[in-house]
Write a protein that binds this DNA or RNA. Structure first.
Length: 375
RNA sequence: GGGUAGAUAGCGAAGCGGUCAAACGCAACAGACUGUAAAUCUGUCGACUUAUGUCUUCGGAGGUUCGAAUCCUCCUCUACCCA
C-alpha cells in the first residue's frame, strides 16, 4: 500500500545473526520471502547484527554463547551473506552492519532510548515473563536487545521487517520505536518457523536437527529423508512451493506413496542448493549405501607406513573412534568389517598391502586402507 | 553490605562417609527392524596393552578419616531474597 501511494519501492529489512554463520533451511523460509520482495522490485536490506553479537546473548538455552570479536563478527557476516546469496539476488541486496550506528551511540543515547520502553512492556514477552515468574535470571542487556534491534529500524527507516515468528516481539518493539522517533512504523511480517529433522523442535544448529546450506548434497538428501512423514507437506510448502494446486496434488501423493513423495522433496531441495544432477547423484548414493547397504565408490584412500596394524589403533587413527575403548566397543557390537568380513576379535592385527581394503565402521563410515608403496 | 541456595560426566539431574567410574533422563554410538539417517526394541556410553585388573574424575586448594562426590577450612564462580 505504502509503495503504491508513494510510488517508491519498499525497504525490506531482515536481521542476521552473525554468531551462527551456518545457514540452514530454517533461515531459508524467511530469505525466500525476502527474495519475493526483491523480485517485485523492492529493496532488500540484510542487517548483520555484528554489534549485538559482540555483546553475546546469555538468554535461553545458549547460556554460553561466545562473545565475538569485531573481526569475527564481520567475517561471519560475510559468510552469512555468501550463503544467503544462494537464495537472494546478491546484486540487489544491501548489507549493513549495525555496529556502524549502534556502536556510535553514547551512554546517554542509550538511556534516552531505554526511556521509551517500560519494564512492564518488556515483560509482555512470553520468554521474559516465563523466566521472571519462575525466577530464572534475566540480564538487563537482554532488555536492551529488542531495543537495539529496534534502533536498527529507526536508523534504516525501513517499511517492512521480516523475521521468524519467534521474532515477533522484537519486530513489534522496532515498530513502536519508529513511531516514538517520528518515523512511519514498519509492517512486521513473521514467517512460520521450520521444524527440524527431529520433527519436534524448531530447526537449529545447536539442537543438531538442522539441514545446512553448506551440507553436502548427500547429507542434505539423507537428512531430508529422515524427517517424519508428517513433515513432508510442511517442508514442501515452506521450502519448495506454495502453489496450492501443486500442494493438493502432493497431499494425495503423500497419502498414496510417502516414500516417493519424500524422495521427490529431497531431490527438489538438493536441486535448489546444488543442481538437478547433484540431486540425482545424491539419490543414487543414498540408495547404494542405505537401501542396498553397499560401500560408496569414491572413498578416500588412507595409506599407512606399516604392513599391519591393530584394529583398535586403526579405528582411532582413522578417526572412526575417539578412543581405543570406543573402538573396542564398536568391534564388540559387530560394527566393524574389513572387506565385508566381520571383525570379532578386538586384538586382531589387520594386514595391509598394496591392494586397498575397505573398512566399514558402523553404518556410515567407510575407509579404504592400504600400505604405502615402498618401491 | 546481610542472608539463602547451589557448582556432579556432552547437557539436565540423583547421590550426602565405604557396596561410586557415580542412579535416572536427554543427546551420542552400535545392533535388529524399516521406504528412511524416522519410529520402535536391544545394547554401549571416563581412559588404558579387556582385566572379574590399573589409572584419572564429582568448581579450586588444603584438612579430618583406615576410607570422602559425600565431613571441616579457605577460595572462586552462579542465582535468588533482604538492604
Amino acid at each position: 500500500m505504502r509503495s503504491l501511494q508513494t510510488g517508491k519501492p519498499l525497504k525490506i529489512k531482515l536481521g542476521a545473526d552473525p554468531s551462527r554463520p551456518d545457514l540452514h533451511l530454517g533461515h531459508s523460509v524467511v530469505l525466500k520471502k525476502l527474495r519475493e520482495f526483491q523480485d517485485l522490485g523492492h529493496e532488500a536490506i540484510l542487517i548483520i547484527g555484528d554489534f549485538t553479537a559482540m555483546i553475546g546473548d546469555p538468554s535461553g538455552k545458549s547460556k554460553t554463547r561466545p562473545q565475538l570479536s569485531a573481526e569475527e563478527a564481520r567475517e561471519n557476516g560475510k559468510s552469512y551473506f555468501e550463503q544467503a546469496s544462494k537464495i537472494l539476488d546478491a546484486t540487489k541486496t544491501t548489507i549493513c552492519y549495525n555496529a556502524d550506528w549502534l556502536g556510535k551511540m553514547s551512554f546517554s543515547d542509550v538511556i534516552r532510548l531505554s526511556s521509551h520502553y517500560t519494564v512492564a512492556r518488556m515483560l509482555e514477552r512470553d520468554d521474559f515473563e516465563r523466566r521472571y515468574r519462575s525466577r530464572e535470571p534475566i540480564s538487563i542487556h537482554e532488555f536492551l536487545y529488542p531495543l537495539a534491534q529496534g534502533m536498527d529500524s529507526v536508523h534504516l527507516k525501513n517499511d517492512v521487517e521480516l523475521g521468524g515468528t519467534d521474532q515477533k516481539f522484537n519486530l513489534l518493539v522496532g515498530r513502536d520505536l519508529q513511531r516514538e522517533y517520528g518515523i512511519a512504523p514498519q509492517v512486521c511480517i513473521t514467517m512460520e518457523l521450520l521444524v527440524g529433522t527431529d520433527g519436534k523442535e524448531k530447526m537449529s544448529k545447536s539442537l543438531g536437527n538442522a539441514i545446512c546450506f553448506n551440507d553436502t548434497p548427500n547429507d542434505m538428501y539423507g537428512k531430508v529423508l529422515s524427517i517424519p512423514d508428517t513433515l513432508i507437506e510442511t517442508y514442501h510448502r515452506l521450502l519448495v512451493t506454495r502453489n496450492k494446486e501443486l500442494l493438493t496434488a502432493l497431499l494425495e501423493h503423500i497419502a498414496d506413496n510417502p516414500r516417493e513423495a519424500k524422495r521427490t522433496l529431497a531431490k527438489d531441495i538438493v536441486a535448489q542448493y546444488y543442481s538437478i544432477n547433484a540431486a540425482l547423484e545424491a539419490e543414487e548414493h543414498f540408495d547404494r549405501i542405505f537401501v542396498q547397504k553397499k560401500a560408496p565408490d569414491n572413498i578416500e584412500l588412507v595409506e599407512f607406513e606399516q604392513n599391519s596394524i591393530a584394529v583398535t589403533d586403526l579405528l582411532v587413527s582413522l578417526g572412526a573412534a575417539p578412543s581405543k575403548s570406543e573402538a573396542r566397543r564398536m568391534i564388540q557390537q559387530n560394527a566393524v568389517t574389513v572387506d565385508e568380513k566381520k571383525i570379532t576379535d578386538t586384538n586382531v592385527l589387520v594386514q595391509l598391502d598394496d591392494i586397498p581394503k575397505t573398512l566399514k565402521a558402523g553404518k556410515r563410515k567407510f575407509y579404504k586402507i592400504a600400505a604405502k608403496k615402498t618401491f
